[in-house]
Amino acid sequence: MSTLFALGLAGFFSGVCASLGIGGGFVLLLYLTAIAGTPQLEAQLVNLIFFLPIGGFSLGFHLKNGLVEKSVLLPSILGGVFGVACGAILAGWLSDRGVSKLFALLILAVGLRELFFSHPKQAGSGWEEFLLYGQEPDRKPR
């Protein structure tokens, strides 16, 4: 399988999973790090840039439909700015290998949760339904 084809496939499944609300960012990171052998920090940057247009599109839709709770945004983003700075410093301080191992532990925990502790009501119940069906999911076609 050519690298280009594999990359396109990873992008496609990442988009599918993002749309289904089951962790598109992780799919792309997993492909880039565990399969393509891209260094962890380089893969993370590709993933971040990949998310910007897709997240921007989704956010525009949600704002239009009044689904964004604006009261939590300012404190969350302000807190997040400090968090990002700490995370970036930590990433620069740890080696690429160190971040990769920590990431592996994180996805191990998430994988165990999804495999053994996910419930039907959590699955696909989020923003992705509204992306498709607007604010009235009960009326969606089945």
Binding site: G25, F26, L29, A43, Q44, L45, N47, L48, F51, S71, V72, L74, P75, S76, I77, L78, G79, G80, V81, F82, G83, V84, A85, C86, G87, A88, I89, L90, A91, V99, L102, F103, L106
Partner: peptide, 22 residues
């Protein structure tokens, strides 16, 4: 609530800054 939201953003920011996702 604003402190809760700030703390929540802080933790999410650490994950985003460290792993680029999550």
């Amino acid at each position: 609530p604003s402190l809760k939201s700030g703390g929540l953003g802080f933790l999410a920011g650490i994950l985003n800054g460290l792993f680029g996702a999550g």
